[in-house]
């Protein structure tokens, strides 16, 4: 069978589908000071998965606010700097108007994912951390 670390090189999704892959990628991103990008990506996926059943609404609102405050609000943060201004205003509007939608972070997540696919992921595959692991 193909060893996991070779699968990681196939696509970003293959890497993010493996616990050890995530761990190593996060170690690399931490070195580059951009681990928040990965955390944000997973936070968006997790947010989408919170069920919309009654009683969860308050939790969703709290979570949306937490994600907004931690990653989007600070314009100097690594995540905030990679997200388009229009996308940020959209999220801000949703939070301010308490309009909590499961897809409200989708566009921002896509932008961060594109950034990782074009930038940090290829760098990771060439990094000492990955090469030493293999």
């Amino acid at each position: 069978p193909t060893p996991p670390y070779l699968k990681w090189a196939e696509s970003l999704h293959s890497l993010l589908d493996d616990q050890d892959g995530i761990h190593l990628f996060r170690t690399f991103l931490k070195q580059e000071d951009c681990a928040d990008m990965l955390d944000f990506w997973f936070a968006c996926s997790g947010f989408r998965k919170v069920e919309a059943s009654d009683g969860k609404e308050e939790k969703k609102l709290k979570l949306a606010k937490a994600i907004y405050r931690k990653y989007i609000l600070d314009n100097n943060g690594i995540v905030s700097r990679q997200i388009k201004p229009a996308t940020k205003s959209f999220i801000k509007d949703c939070v301010m108007k308490l309009h909590i939608d499961p897809a409200m972070f989708d566009q921002a997540q896509t932008e961060i994912q594109t950034m990782m696919e074009e930038n940090t992921y290829p760098l990771f595959l060439k990094s000492d951390i990955y090469l030493e692991y293999t």
């Binding site: 589908d17 616990q19 995530i22 997973f42 996926s45 997790g46 947010f47 979570l63 937490a66 994600i67």
Partner: peptide, 20 residues
């Protein structure tokens, strides 16, 4: 603020793949 961080951590973990 602590509970907000916990909520965020829980959310991040829930999206990660489970051990195979």
């Amino acid at each position: 603020i602590d509970s907000e961080d916990d909520l965020l951590q829980e959310c991040i973990s829930s999206a990660m793949p489970k051990k195979k």
